[in-house]
Design a protein around this nucleic acid. Structure first.
Length: 262
DNA sequence: AAGCTGGTCGCCGTTACATCA
DNA sequence: TGTGATGTAACGGCGACCAGC
C-alpha cells in the first residue's frame, strides 16, 4: 500500500508502526528531495501517528492515493474522509490536470512519502516567493502558481498557501504599525488634554486674583495656542500684544501635526 | 430574468510542527 | 536535556464572485 522507496532509513521504522501510523508517516514530506535531511525520520513517539481529521484530508485529498486503507481521526473510513475533503479533492484534481508532466512526477514522489511533517522552505525558495510577492501579492491563478510551483519544485497548493500566509503576515504587521500609531496619537492627546486642563486652572486662578482690562472681553473670544502658549488675535495683523483675539477657535489636531498648531 | 449549482478564490481562525532560547 | 515561546506551513470553513444550466 505504501511506497517506501525513497528513504531507506524510514522503512524499518515503518514496519513497526500501526497501519494508521504508516499511512501518516509514509506521506511524510519529501520535499525534500531538495533538502533531504536524514534526521527527518518518522516520529515514533506515537502522537504523530494519531492522525487528525485534517491530516486525513491531506491524505484523502492532496496525497490521497495511498489513503484508501484508512481515514483520519484514527481509523475512520475513507468514504467519510472523502466527504469531508471535497474541497481538497477539487484542488487536487485541478492541480493534477494542470500540472506539467514534470510536476506530476514530483507529486508522485510527494504522494509516496509525503505527510503532515512540516516542510521548511529553503532560503532560495523563500527568496523566490518573496520576489514574486513583491510584484504581486496575489497569484495569477492557474498560471503564476503553476509556474512558481514548477520552478520551486513544490506543489501548487503549497505556493498558494504560502501566498495566503504571506498576505496574513503583511496584514498583521500593518495592524501592528497602525496600532502603534494610534497609541502614540492617544498619548499625545492625553498629554494635550492634561496640559490644557492645567492651563485652564491657571487661567481661572489668574482671573480670580486679578482683573486685568483684557479680561473684560468675552472669554469666548480668547484662544490660546497649545504649542506656543500665546493667545491669538485677529483684530490686528501684527501680533504685538501678549494677548489678543481670534475670530474662530484654533483647534489643535495631533493627527495632522502635533507641532504644526502654530 | 431569476434561481440554482458547481467551481474558484481569498480570508480567517486554528492546528501542528520545527526551531530557538 | 527538557520546556516554553515563537514562526510558519497547512488546514477547514466560510463568503463572494462567476459561469453554465
Amino acid at each position: 500500500m505504501v511506497n517506501h522507496g525513497v528513504y531507506d532509513n524510514n522503512i524499518i521504522l515503518d514496519l513497526t508502526l500501526s497501519s494508521s501510523m504508516l499511512r501518516h508517516n509514509t506521506t511524510k514530506k519529501p520535499c525534500n528531495i531538495l533538502n533531504f535531511d536524514p534526521s527527518l525520520t518518522l516520529a515514533l513517539s506515537g502522537d504523530h501517528g494519531i492522525t487528525k481529521k485534517k491530516h486525513a484530508c491531506d491524505h484523502g485529498g492532496l496525497y490521497g492515493q495511498d489513503s484508501g486503507s484508512g481515514g483520519g481521526g484514527g481509523g475512520s473510513s475513507f468514504i467519510s474522509v472523502a466527504s469531508v475533503c471535497v474541497k481538497r479533492e477539487r484542488e487536487v484534481k485541478s492541480e493534477v490536470i494542470s500540472t506539467t508532466s514534470e510536476v506530476e512526477e514530483e507529486e508522485d514522489d510527494d504522494n509516496s512519502v509525503n505527510g503532515r511533517k512540516k516542510l521548511r522552505l529553503t532560503k532560495a525558495q523563500s527568496a523566490l516567493l518573496e520576489e514574486a510577492f513583491k510584484h504581486h501579492s496575489s497569484l495569477n491563478p492557474q498560471k503564476q502558481k503553476q509556474e512558481l510551483a514548477r520552478e520551486l519544485k513544490l506543489r501548487p497548493r503549497q505556493v498558494e498557501v504560502w501566498f495566503q500566509n504571506r498576505r496574513a503576515r503583511t496584514k498583521l504587521k500593518q495592524t501592528e504599525v497602525d496600532y502603534e500609531y494610534l497609541k502614540k496619537c492617544c498619548e499625545t492627546l492625553k498629554e494635550e488634554n492634561t496640559r490644557l486642563h492645567k492651563e485652564l486652572q491657571e487661567l481661572k486662578a489668574l482671573k480670580q486674583s486679578t482683573q486685568p482690562p483684557y479680561m473684560q472681553l468675552p472669554a469666548a473670544t480668547l484662544t490660546m495656542c497649545p504649542s506656543c502658549k500665546r493667545i491669538g488675535d485677529t483684530t490686528s495683523s501684527v501680533n504685538t500684544r501678549p494677548f489678543s483675539i481670534t475670530p474662530k477657535p484654533h483647534f489643535f489636531n495631533p493627527f495632522n501635526n502635533p507641532s504644526a498648531a502654530c
